[in-house]
Design a protein around this nucleic acid. Sequence first.
RNA 1: GCCCCCAUCGUCUAGCGGCCCAGGACACCGCUCUUUCAAGGCGGCAGCACGGGUUCGAAUCCCGUUGGGGGCGCCA
Length: 465
Amino acid sequence: MRVRFAPSPTGFFHVGGARTALFNWLFARHLGGTFVLRIEDTDAERGREEWLNGIVDALTWIGIDWDEGPYRQSERGKLYADAADRLYADGNAYWCGCTRPAVDERNKANDIATPGYDGYCRERALSPRQGRALRFRTPTEGSTTVVDVIRGTPVFEHANLEDFVVLRSDASPVFLLANAVDDIDMSITHVIRGEEHLSNTPKTLLLWDALDGGPRPVFAHVPLLVNEKGQKLSKRRDKVALEDYRDQGFLADATRNYLGLLGWAPGGDREILSVAEMVREFRLEDVKSSPAFFDERKLLHFNGEYIRALSLDDFVDAARPFLAAGSWATEEFDEGAFRALAPLVQERVKTLTEVPAMVDFLFLSEAPVEEGAWDRRVVRGAAAAELLAGAAEVYSSCEWAAPVLHQVTASLGERHGLSLGKAQFPIRVAVTGREVGPPLFESLEILGRQRSIDRLLRALARLEA
RNA sequence: GCCCCCAUCGUCUAGCGGCCCAGGACACCGCUCUUUCAAGGCGGCAGCACGGGUUCGAAUCCCGUUGGGGGCGCCA
């Protein structure tokens, strides 16, 4: 049992591609088959090295490994040329000198509203020459049945299939040819790919047989990933780059888990699944046939679940790259302080990019300034000046521990007829700069007595100025 | 225009003829817990597109309608 994932290098890694790769990989691992990685870079201009690296990095990030490859179509030109020669020699293909505009014009003149080729050169027996393309001679009768694990057995009448190009006029192979040749050459048994390929599958099969490819592969056309309007996710209008999610603080495991549930479910009520569980339970027959909307909000929820499930060490490691985006001077970062606050941060963020703003007050010389918060909770806060002054005073002599700070602050609030919930606001804003963040008293404890009091006094001075 | 695919809460889905006047999750709305915000707990809102069959019985099977999507390129 052999499957392949065959992305074309386009500069970024599409989430739909990631899902297709994942299904291929789960299928292979579940059955103990072979997963082949093949890069479809027939379009020479696109065969850029960094594009390949992007694919390799993205797959690696999400936890997919391959048993063979990456093969590159750009390095396998001979195979495609030979196949094209055989097609021509066997009479399964012919040379065509038509240009696209000419075809369109004829179709228009004949009142044919089909964009397909009209077969103009089919019987002209043209010889190969510069500027001519090679077209497959599609049978005029009969039909091709696709065997698809997910879709059943759709039947395509040959009469509806045009004579499609297999070799461009510059002698380069098109996708259909290279794809079929490689799948035959690599003994692919199961072709798992996006539904957009279903309509072209009879062409693939016709080529397969014309090239004596042997037993036809079994197909599995997985449902499309769509946007909120139900349209196929596209680079132009939708956010589709896997790298973007990674850079925005999504964990690979959460993303993998979410992607795996788009069009497939393990049955029952479970959703959070480890890789091992997915491998164990994944079955191609259980993949749905209807499109799935890629819902970032649910991904966000999964991410929160996975972040909270991380061990302290893993969370610190995962957050590290994102800490670089903090507004503090690098040398001011204090790993110990971060680790101390991390457990409280961990359960409050849904993405890693939210981490810096939750801890920056620890590493900045002064509290960051959030004007809205200052205005709401200090300038217009009830008894703000009294609370700041009072806190500065009691904090200077009480034991410096969160429970004690909690207790003395509560008493301070009581004296002004305020609940702790209200009383902590001016202090929170004065010290951390923000009205929301990790629990205040733990934050104070970690920040330290002197720095906390300094900030309280500074806030007081600003308020009275 | 032609061909193909699809159809359970707003979204992702469970369901594969009786266990379902349809279960879970996200989102949303209450309540609760609470030092902010989250997280957690409890509760709520909300769906089998429509019409015919088949069957003792249909969300589940068949046909049609409607709606949505994909493909038809010297892109992949």
